[in-house]
Design a protein around this nucleic acid. Structure first.
Lengths: 332, 332
DNA sequence: CTGTTAGCGCCTTCAT
DNA sequence: ATGAAGGCGCTAACAG
């Protein structure tokens, strides 16, 4: 069923059909009615492909994340999808993992499909900075990167002040009397490095950098458990642990519990992302809210702006907040 | 940069360019090289839109879920995306919520965009059975519904035996000596009703239907907490609780803990979906694995089959498994 | 108010 | 081995 068929059946030209299709004014009531009837009778749906070809607009946006199974990204994907679908766009979901080659392939396919824009979520995708081939592919496409940066004119950023996020955690613990605060990094991306940096400077600012301790581990429950094991083996003195990810913090919580260490009585624990995990854990987990939802929503809006008027916007900044729960609550 | 530009710059016809584009044989080495060089130099990418118009294929599939933020759906979306992208398809993600009107709109837009197929995840979408307008929209599109059913020839199903899933839970608890087993339903969809049904028949089979007790509540931690509150207020005797969703079970776990009831010592708890939540909870949650990943993967494969050769497949069945964890472990 | 005519970018016979 | 021409379904001047 094409516009021609409808035109024939309605006894008018395709132009007229196109007109009623697009709600143009200059069509008589009668013919409009006639055409609309024929359309309905035949269950006609105009081909968006053909329209895209003419208008050079696909009303489709690529949303690129590492892995939607991670709640943080599921959230951002959800928020982005809702925001963008509200603006008339479809969202193509891309799970790249932490693999530059995958990123390249997805980006290429998205560009070939002429998506109207691409949204990258997470500083993981800063990796593209060192892949000129990918940047070249992106040259003509409006791009926004949530909590990351891309050195090309077609890209804009929304940035979360993750250094500040960790500092909030340190401050909270410091005020609770903690001095031997450990920091755990469990993912390899720019924002994780920034969190670590925020920790260091926060410790310095409070004159306790001598008691600072940095640890690296794998993402997840096991990674968190391992880190506690290492701390204990080393006979390290510590009264609080800050993790760069909630799930890793959960692992810490579990291993502490298994070792008979009380939380927050003996050791306080703070996570990052304020994901649903934090509410599920017991004790519930104090966590830095990186405002992922706001970030995602703003990114989506920014992208829409970029697509409509092709000018560049300066980066937007978002401030994190600390959500205190049981795992660090001061006994009072 | 179009095929015409390339043709001109390479001094050949667009046909030739098209040929090298599609790797056809009948082009001399020389011209092929020449054309390829020009393409690279100009960073040419053929428009998939134009190709779609000609081939009537978009290599795009709509994946419709209620809400990707729910881990179960995040998982299925992930698995589907990976499977489908492996087969050369892009995935358009749709979050409909539990709202038929949203479903209608998404479906319409997907059809208008001429996606090659649509995958619905969850029996929630059985709601479409009562919406002939939606079914009409779907008539020409290959469709698969994971754990649900659609009465149209273009649709196929993969079904999980959720009645059996709950029965596994009952059986496990029964063997652990439990008789006063409560069932909690916290979502309103066909599979939840089937789980409830499975519970009832499992109780009957063991001759303890007289001690069966059905409860309804809201999805989530709060819903789970409420249910325990009600049970306690009513002075109901119960030694085990089966929930239709992990998150609700977590709420049950939390409220029991707050009330000083030991799990599994005093009361055993079983969830459903075997989501990551189950590992995070403490005590860790025994849960029925509905094999969501397998279901999603099979659905994706089935859909690809449907798209390639337009014949109908009979429904596939998947058997759930019980994963026993701390929340129901028999003290031994 | 309505119809004719070009494209949009690409693929595909059919000739040469 | 290569090119010319028509068509995929729709929009957009430009004429009547």
């Amino acid at each position: 069923m094409t516009i021609y068929d409808i035109a024939k059946k309605a006894g008018v030209s395709i132009t007229t059909v196109s007109r009623v299709l697009n709600g143009k004014e200059d069509v008589s009531k009668k013919t409009r009615q006639k055409v609309e009837t024929v359309m309905l009778e035949n269950n006609y749906m105009p081909s968006f492909i053909a329209r895209s070809l003419v208008a050079d607009v696909t009303k489709t946006i690529g949303v690129v994340v590492m892995d939607v199974r991670i709640p943080h990204y599921a959230n951002t994907a959800y928020v982005a999808e809702q925001e963008l679908s509200g603006a008339g766009y479809h969202v193509i979901l891309c799970n790249t993992g932490n693999n530059a080659e995958n990123v390249r392939n997805y980006v290429q396919d998205l560009v070939v499909k002429r998506v109207d824009g691409i949204m990258f979520v997470s500083s993981t995708f800063n990796m593209m900075q060192e892949r000129p081939e990918i940047l070249a592919l992106l040259a003509e496409t409006p791009v926004v990167i949530a909590n990351g940066e891309l050195p090309i004119p077609s890209a804009c950023s929304v940035l979360v002040d993750d250094a500040r996020g960790t500092e909030l955690a340190v401050q909270h613990l410091f005020e609770g009397g903690h001095r031997d605060i450990v920091h755990v990094k469990s993912v390899d991306k720019e924002s994780a490095r920034i969190k670590q940096f925020g920790y260091r400077s926060a410790m310095e600012q409070r004159g306790i950098e001598g008691r600072a301790y940095l640890l690296d581990t794998d993402y997840g429950i096991k990674g968190g458990r391992d880190v506690v094991g290492r701390l204990l083996e080393d006979g390290r003195v510590f009264s609080a642990i800050i993790c760069d990810e909630d799930l890793t913090a959960i692992g810490v919580l579990k291993q502490l519990a298994d070792t008979g260490i009380q939380v927050p009585g003996d050791v306080a624990v703070v996570g990052y992302n304020n994901s649903e995990y934090a509410e599920i854990a017991s004790p519930t987990l104090t966590s830095v809210d990186g405002k992922g939802n706001d970030c995602s929503k703003l990114s989506a809006q920014l992208l829409c702006g970029l697509i409509e008027k092709r000018n560049h916007f300066p980066p937007l900044y978002i401030q994190p907040e600390l959500v205190v729960r049981e795992s660090s609550r001061t006994k009072s």
